[in-house]
Each structure stands twice: as C-alpha cells, then as structure tokens.
C-alpha cells in the first residue's frame, strides 16, 4: 500500500514538472547570473504592445518573443536597466512601460490621486469643523434662553400628577 502511494505521488510530481516546463517559453543562457535576474525583472515591467494587458514575460505573441530576445541582447551588451527601458521607449513609446515616467503629461496621472485625497480630506475637515461650530452655537443659545426648563406652573402640574 505504501509503495503504491509513493508511486502515485512520484507520478503526480512528474506530471507537475512537465507542466511547468511547458509554460516557460524559450530558454536563454546568460553569461552572468545577474543578467538572468534582471532579464526576468525587465520582462515583468515591459508591456507587450500587441496584447495590451500582458507584460512581455506573460505573452507569447511574436512581438513579445522579439522583445525578450532584444532585452537579452541588450543585457549581454552590458546596458543598464534605464538604458534598456529607454531603448524600448524610443521604439514603442511610453506605452511600453507599465510604470510611465514622471513627465509633464503624466503629472496628473502620478499626482492626481494624491491631490484628490488631499482635497477630500480638506472637504471632510471643513464639513466637520462647521458641524461642530454649529452644534456649539446651538448649545449656547439653548442654555441662555432656558427654553428647556419648566416654569413654576408646569412644575406644579407635574408634581400633582406624580403624587397621585
């Protein structure tokens, strides 16, 4: 029984390993291990121009294959990450970066959310402060007019009712 279990689990592991192999597209060998790490990092931040919601690591389109090969070639040439991103941007525009650069036209994109958050907080503070001030004013006015207090006749009526 135990042998059977072992065999089944061995087969399961084997099946899983072939699945993993099928999902990796092409195999590159790098001259430095550091290049491989940066290769995978760059592939996840570069966007496939054809299949717009995938990065080039996920996509298996022709263009992504080309871009991966280009990234590898540039790495082997000893280019820095910034230079490689610049190289891609020269050809495919800022579209190719998942994280667009901070430029004049992307200011709204980068700082817009922070601006909205600050604006929202300011509005909230404004409303809260105003409400508080209103409530304080109301308390002040009610205490000065004594409208909540009973006059003598009313007090006498209540005493009478309670004593019954």
């Amino acid at each position: 029984m135990r042998v059977l279990m072992l065999m089944v689990s061995c087969i399961a592991v084997l099946l899983l390993s072939t699945m993993a192999q099928a999902s990796s597209v092409e195999t590159y060998t790098f001259t430095k291990p550091e290049y491989e790490v940066r290769f995978h990092m760059l592939n996840t931040i570069l966007r496939c121009p054809k299949c717009q919601n995938q990065n080039i690591a996920d996509s298996n389109s022709l263009i992504s294959q080309d871009l991966r090969r280009e990234v590898k070639r540039l790495l082997e040439e000893g280019r820095s990450d910034e230079q490689i991103m610049e190289h891609m941007m020269m050809r495919y525009g800022s579209f190719v970066l998942y994280k667009p650069k901070v430029e004049r036209i992307t200011y709204l994109l980068w700082y817009g959310p922070i601006g909205f958050a600050i604006f929202g907080l300011l509005m909230l503070m404004f409303v809260v402060v105003r409400q508080k001030r209103k409530r304080q004013e109301r308390i002040k006015t009610s205490s000065t007019t004594d409208s909540a207090m009973l006059n003598d006749d009313e007090q006498a009526d209540i005493d009478k009712l309670l004593n019954q």
């Binding site: 121009p49 263009i63 080309d66 280009e70 050809r91 495919y92």
Partner: peptide, 13 residues
C-alpha cells in the same frame, strides 16, 4: 527574418 529592423521601427504587427 529575425524582425530586427521591424523592432527598430516599433512594429508590433
């Protein structure tokens, strides 16, 4: 054949 010129041209299809 390997799409180098096309890549330099920013071709994606």
């Amino acid at each position: 054949v390997d799409g180098r010129l096309a890549l330099d041209l920013g071709v994606f299809g």
